[in-house]
Amino acid sequence: MMRAATSAPPSGVAEGYRREVPPVTREGEVASIDATGVYYQQLNDAVRDAIAAGATTVRITGMNGQRYLGAGLRATGVTIEAHGCAGNDTAMFADGPAIEVFGNAQDGVGNTMSSGRVVVHGDAGDVLGYGMRGGHVLVKGDVGYRVGIHMKAYEKHVPVVVCGGKARDFFGEYMAGGILVLLGVSTQFPEQPLVGGFTGAGMHGGVIYLRGTVEPWQCGAEVGITEATAEDLSALRPHIEEWATAFGADVDEIMAGSFTKLAPMSHRPYGKLYASI
């Protein structure tokens, strides 16, 4: 059986970027890549090559919306720094690497991610953490729609997403596992509600913590809304610490707020929906 070929040799312009091998410099274990105007395929090839060549830090400058940074990357003990705006599906399918974005990130951060850590020093877009099964995603600011959709946990794999700002509709929809946290402390939209509608709609596993309150109409029918207990707060604290450490915030100040816990009322929300024929 024929096997897959590698991508086409770089040439020409694609989607506004140049298909060119980006300049890479190496100092010790740090590889620096200037991504200015370079197409994502060549950028990702350069990142993979640098890691294969032993770099433990890959520093990317001139990042401007290139997609798929670290997508499908299996690597532990490796940090990728992206200076600029990370594009769609950053860390998609990633298994192990730490990715730190010094800027905003677009849609689909941590999509179907297995393990690793993503830190976004800015805002992030829609469908962050979709189907995520492990690892941590920390966002300093606001996030878009459908964030944390269908996150799932399995044995020791428990995905954690902590967003410092506010979120739009469908936060934690279909959630099947993991921990999804929304703080509302670092937002561009002080006038807006903490979270949109349909929060946790179809939720059947995992837990959502909101710093503040939420109206029942904002949540899916499958969600139980309670005030976080002392036990909940002690489980939550390490994740807040991780977020506060990443972004230089005060843990106690954040923890001093009141937290609402959203959890599914059933692991089988649709168990009685059907009549077998």
Partner: peptide, 20 residues
């Protein structure tokens, strides 16, 4: 559960659309 990487005994729900 191990192959799907989801907990035992919970419904495995496939949403109608891909949300991305």
């Amino acid at each position: 559960s191990a192959t799907r990487m989801i907990p035992q005994g919970t419904d495995a729900i496939s949403p109608a659309p891909h949300h991305d």
